[in-house]
């Protein structure tokens, strides 16, 4: 049903064989709405930066290609989900946070309160001093301790 083919070469790069028969190496998958609608609107962009294929819905792809795109996206998009705030060094900023995420425990520096972005009801995106983003999917679903700590910054 899809008019293109995807594969991975030995260098770990995604290779796209487009409908016109042209082969593009080092194709990158990008989500158009990473927060609002992560599974809709995925663009395959060539190494030149031009869009090659637009995938309206990830579910439309055949299984193996969906897996490849999924792997590619997982590599590119690193937004650890904060499951628990273990401790914060101070309620003033900059502040060192120790958190448990879905990718394990880590520490980061919050530079200022404005780095905590509200992106919807109870949903927070927290940027650290190195530009990495952490997601709090639902503020109200956190445990009491974490919520109390986080509340001091909101």
């Amino acid at each position: 049903m899809s008019d293109f083919e995807l594969s991975r070469n030995s260098f770990g790069r995604l290779v796209l064989k487009a409908a016109d028969g042209r082969v593009h190496e080092g194709v990158v998958a990008v989500r158009a709405f990473p927060i609002a609608a992560p599974d809709e609107g995925i663009s395959l962009v060539g190494s030149e930066g031009h869009e090659l294929v637009w995938i309206a819905r990830l579910d439309d792809l055949p299984d193996d290609m969906r897996r490849l795109v999924g792997e590619e996206l997982a590599q590119r998009e690193f937004v650890p989900v904060i499951e628990r705030l273990v401790a914060v060094s101070t309620f003033a900023t900059p502040s060192y946070w120790r958190v448990t995420t879905d990718h394990g425990e880590t520490e980061f520096i919050l530079r200022g309160e404005e780095d905590i972005r509200r992106i919807g009801h109870g949903k927070l995106l927290i940027g650290d001093s190195h530009g990495m983003q952490y997601l709090v999917p639902d503020l109200y679903a956190l445990d009491g301790h974490s919520r109390k700590l986080l509340d001091r910054f909101l």
Binding site: F11, R76, F78, D128, M132
Partner: peptide
């Protein structure tokens, strides 16, 4: 690097 994550590759 992309989006705050760096990748080091040996090939």
């Amino acid at each position: 690097d992309h989006a705050g994550v760096g990748t080091l590759e040996l090939s």
